[in-house]
Structures are given as structure tokens and as C-alpha cells.
Simulated assay, not measured.
Amino acid sequence: MDALYDQIGSGYDATRKPDPYIRDKLKALLRPVEGERYVDVACGTGNYTLSLAKAGVRIVGFDASARMIATARKKGRPSSHEGFVLADVGQTPFKSAAFDGAVCTLAIHHFPDLMAAFCEIGRLVHPVSGRLVLLTALPLQMKRYWLCRYFPTMLRRSWEQMPDMEKLVKALYVAGFPHIDTEPYEVTETLEDLFLYSGKHRPQLYLDAGFRAGISSFANLADAGEVAHGLDQLAKDIKSGAICDIIRSYSHKGGDYLFIRADR
């Protein structure tokens, strides 16, 4: 993951910004207590770390990408006491039970060993009252993205690296988070954080190379030929209006992403 995000990190913040709704939902699920300490796992350039800090959460962020952390540090410190830390999720420099809870946004599919990562997070948070809040996508959700029509190989590779619910539950249970609640999240037209399916209602976004550059699937999992062909067909469907029917044909009620709150 560190090499991938070192590669795309230079222009990452051009399109990847903290979305207010997602920030507020993360905070609501985390239920932070004033004075307690929290951690943003695989924080990237610190967008949500700093946004949560501004919302009153005492939080520190860490990431395995040196470029991402360097960018985060240029933005400031999430608290007066702590900054951003360069660390791998499998082995962090923090003391056991150093935090009262953790958040992780759209990153678990990059963990080389999900079980080891969750166990390390379990070590970091309070053994009785600790909580982990995740935003991720399930393979079943991704199979319903209309992007599959234009970039089938890229989407297949994308959902194949996503842990399914069974694997997530097992890893969370082993890590000491047996109480799990989920809440589907559906992309809106006003979404400000431009991740993979953020263009669900704005298909023209995918025609922008700058937009695609901030998305790991396009940066790491896509074949140039498929992307070129898919973009050409997408542009034609946008121009003709056919994209409206295509988007409707992929509609479903299972959500596009999933919030997960896991408690001790």
C-alpha cells in the first residue's frame, strides 16, 4: 500500500477532500468522549484526521506512505500534542491501549494481512470500551456499480481485493471486537470526497484524468486499453443520454459502501 500511495500521493488532495457527511457519521459512530484519545488508521494525507480534530475529537493519524504523511504534516497537527506518524498498520510504535477508539476510512482493502491489522488495532484501543469505526465497500456492493459496464476487469480486480462481510466479522471477532453494527451508505450527488464510486450520479467525472488519478483502482488495477475503450463508450453514452438508463439499470437497495462499528 505504501508504494501505491507514494505513487499517487502527489496530487491526491486535488480530488480527495473530507466529506462533511462522512466526517459527521464517523464521529457519531465513534461517540468520542472529551479528553479521550483516538487514532485514524491509514489516514492518508490526514483529511479526515484533521476534519475530526476540528470537530472536537482528540485524534492522531498514522499511515505507511511517507509521501502521504509528508503531505499531512504540511497541513498542520491534529492536536496540540501530536502530529502524524509514519507507521505500518501491522506493527505500530504506539503503546497498548494508547487510544479509546479508532477510525479507518476506505483503506482496509490495502492491508496485506487483515487479521494482523485488526489485531494490532485491537492492541491499540482500550480493552474494555474500545471501538473501531470503518468505512469500506463489500464485494457484493461493488458488483452492482454501473462502472462494471465500462471497466469490467478493473472492477473485478477491485472487488476481489475487498474483504467480504464474513471475513470482516471473523477478523474483528479474533481482534476482540465481537459486537458489530452496520449501516449502508449510498453515494449522493453532493459527495465531496471523490473516491471510486463518487461519480455514481456524475458520470462525466470519470472522463477527467485528474479525477481518475486520485483513485487507487484506476492507478493500480486498470489496464490502459480497457480504460481507453471504457472512456470512449462512456463519453458516447453521456452524449446520447443512454447513460441515464444504464445508471437506473444498476440501481439497488444494498448501499454503495458500508459503515461498520465494532465494539469490545
Rank of each mutant, 00 (worst) to 15 (best):
K95A: 15
S96N: 07
G101V: 09
G101T: 08
G101F: 07
A102H: 13
V103T: 15
C104G: 14
C104S: 15
T105V: 14
T105A: 14
T105L: 12
A107G: 13
I108Q: 03
H109E: 11
F111G: 04
D113Q: 02
L114E: 04
M115Y: 02
A117M: 03
A117N: 03
A117G: 14
A117V: 06
L124A: 13
P127A: 07
V128K: 07
V128P: 00
G130M: 13
R131M: 01
L135D: 06
L135E: 06
T136A: 02
P139R: 00
P139S: 02
Q141D: 07
K143E: 14
K143S: 09
Y145N: 05
Y145P: 00
Y145K: 01
W146C: 01
C148E: 13
C148H: 13
Y150L: 09
F151P: 00
T153V: 12
M154H: 08
L155A: 10
L155Y: 04
R157L: 11
R157Y: 07
S158T: 15
E160T: 05
E160K: 09
Q161E: 11
M162F: 15
P163H: 01
D164C: 11
L168R: 03
K170E: 13
A171H: 08
L172S: 07
G176L: 05
F177M: 05
F177R: 05
F177Y: 10
F177H: 04
H179I: 08
D181G: 08
E183N: 06
P184D: 03
P184V: 06
Y185F: 15
V187T: 11
T188R: 01
T190V: 04
E192K: 12
D193L: 06
D193R: 04
F195V: 15
Y197I: 12
G199W: 10
R202K: 10
R202M: 09
R202D: 09
P203K: 14
Q204H: 11
Y206R: 00
L207W: 11
D208E: 15
D208S: 14
D208W: 14
A209Q: 08
A209H: 04
R212W: 03
G214L: 07
I215N: 07
I215M: 10
S216K: 01
S217D: 14
N220S: 09
L221Q: 09
E226K: 14
H229E: 14
